[in-house]
Amino acid sequence: MKKLILPVILLTVLLAGCATVDLNAPIPAFETGIDPSAWAKIPAGAFLSGQEAEPATIDYDYEMMVTDVTVSQYTAFLTESLASGGVKSGEFNGKKAIVGFYPGDEFRAVKHEEKIEAGDWILIPLEDPASRFSFDGSVFAPKPGYENHPMTNVTWFGARAYCLAQGGRLPTELEWEKAARGTDGRAFPWGEEIPLNVANFYSSRDPFEDMSSFGSRTSPVGFFNGQTYGHYVTLSNASPYGLYDMAGNVWQWTGNVYAGMHYRFLRGGSKDTYDMDLRAWVRNNATPTYFSPGVGFRCAR
């Protein structure tokens, strides 16, 4: 009997690893009071960029969205664009998707570079169980509780299409970084330290995660603004220019298309990453067709 104890424990642990995740588990709803349609102005001037805080300059004023684009905002865009023919239903890798036109990138045949040709590219997948919207064939709608959460499962093409439709564009990496950390070279939008209740990151114990079952989920945009929700006290993660969630919650697509590579860069870390990835200079990258429940975006203009 004693000999069986260890194998039984191991078997139980292994079986637990095969458990399924309830992607539609109830999610708490909170009103953050932060307006997702607001834009913040970032003035022209010098700032400190990168891990070594080297001097850099952006010599023009620009604006960036105060929060990530929400599911409500993006589904409204999709419904409107589908009706107007700006986007259409299609397929990507044999699966249903919403696609839109992209004029293509110059191909230089650098090692590992892949062609991004002009044509229709995936904006969002339609049948991914992790998507936070519903679609009845003509109208897109947020899943209940996710209206003010960041739009996720959106590709770089999907992010770009949204920003263009709003008269904007995706921010460059440099614009993104300045908006996130201001001019003084700080590591995080709010400073140097990262307490658990200032952002949504891996195992940050926010009300939206349960590491024993579904793991970490997105939080409403602007959730960490100093408010107290029930018993959960947040600290404000606003950047020096008033942008929220520039660290954590979702990785954010940036707009640069670099010569000789098809990858697009993401900034900010996400609900699924440790705090080190939330540092303002950390870069992630992926193919422009990549989508994930941990990737979103915001626009600049």
Partner: peptide, 16 residues
């Protein structure tokens, strides 16, 4: 396993 569904597997392998 997809990102959305990975947590049980992650918990198990992390534990081990």
């Amino acid at each position: 396993v997809s990102e959305a569904a990975q947590q049980p597997l992650v918990n198990t392998v992390m534990l081990l």
